[in-house]
Amino acid sequence: MRSQSFYQYLMTLRNPHAHDEISQFANNAFFDQAFPKQARTYEEVSEYLELNAGYLPSMTIFDEVWQQYQQ
């Protein structure tokens, strides 16, 4: 298991000046007060995003970042 949560990894991808989908996802998650910051499982994060993250235009963006997180 990774030593950092998915949220901690996602925050390494933040870039307020970038306009790519992954940077935008990270930037928006930063401002999401309810984001499950300690979550380490795919199911927990994906369920939250599907129900609560209107800022994420496609779950494929999450899937791509999750694959990077797992490596």
Score class of each variant (00 low, 15 high):
24 Q>S: 08
69 Y>F: 15
53 A>G: 09
69 Y>R: 01
52 N>M: 05
11 M>N: 07
12 T>H: 11
8 Q>S: 11
25 F>L: 15
7 Y>E: 03
10 L>G: 06
20 D>W: 11
68 Q>T: 01
44 E>W: 06
12 T>C: 10
60 T>F: 12
41 T>D: 01
47 E>G: 11
52 N>I: 04
48 Y>A: 05
61 I>R: 04
16 P>E: 14
48 Y>W: 12
56 L>V: 12
27 N>H: 10
11 M>V: 09
46 S>T: 13
23 S>V: 08
62 F>Y: 07
70 Q>P: 01
35 F>Y: 14
59 M>A: 09
13 L>P: 04
17 H>S: 09
66 W>Q: 00
16 P>M: 08
56 L>H: 11
27 N>Q: 02
17 H>T: 11
20 D>I: 05
37 K>C: 00
1 M>Y: 07
51 L>M: 13
30 F>T: 05
21 E>H: 10
49 L>Q: 08
4 Q>N: 11
52 N>R: 09
34 A>C: 07
36 P>Y: 02
32 D>R: 06
1 M>N: 05
55 Y>H: 03
71 Q>G: 09
1 M>F: 08
8 Q>K: 10
44 E>Q: 15
55 Y>R: 00
39 A>I: 00
17 H>A: 13
1 M>S: 11
41 T>C: 01
5 S>K: 03
47 E>K: 13
32 D>F: 06
42 Y>W: 15
56 L>C: 04
21 E>V: 10
61 I>G: 04
25 F>D: 03
63 D>F: 01
4 Q>Y: 05
51 L>D: 13
55 Y>E: 02
46 S>C: 13
21 E>L: 07
22 I>D: 03
4 Q>P: 00
63 D>P: 07
14 R>Q: 15
62 F>W: 06
62 F>T: 04
62 F>R: 02
29 A>C: 13
70 Q>G: 02
15 N>Q: 09
57 P>S: 03
70 Q>L: 14
62 F>E: 03
37 K>I: 06
9 Y>I: 06
4 Q>V: 10
70 Q>C: 10
19 H>K: 14
64 E>M: 11
63 D>E: 14
22 I>F: 05
44 E>A: 15
54 G>T: 04
13 L>T: 07
17 H>L: 06
32 D>K: 06
60 T>D: 14
26 A>C: 08
65 V>L: 02
63 D>I: 00
65 V>S: 02
57 P>M: 01
35 F>L: 05
46 S>M: 14
1 M>T: 09
63 D>G: 02
43 E>V: 13
39 A>Q: 00
50 E>Q: 15
25 F>H: 02
59 M>W: 05
38 Q>M: 10
63 D>N: 15
31 F>N: 12
3 S>D: 14
12 T>A: 13
61 I>D: 02
44 E>V: 13
55 Y>G: 01
49 L>K: 09
42 Y>Q: 00
25 F>G: 00
51 L>T: 04
1 M>R: 06
15 N>C: 12
4 Q>I: 10
14 R>W: 07
66 W>H: 00
31 F>L: 14
70 Q>N: 08
10 L>E: 09
11 M>D: 08
39 A>Y: 04
44 E>R: 13
7 Y>C: 00
26 A>E: 05
54 G>D: 09
8 Q>Y: 06
8 Q>M: 07
51 L>N: 15
36 P>M: 03
63 D>A: 14
38 Q>P: 05
3 S>L: 13
22 I>E: 14
54 G>E: 02
64 E>D: 10
44 E>N: 11
21 E>K: 10
13 L>R: 15
29 A>G: 06
26 A>P: 07
6 F>S: 02
25 F>K: 04
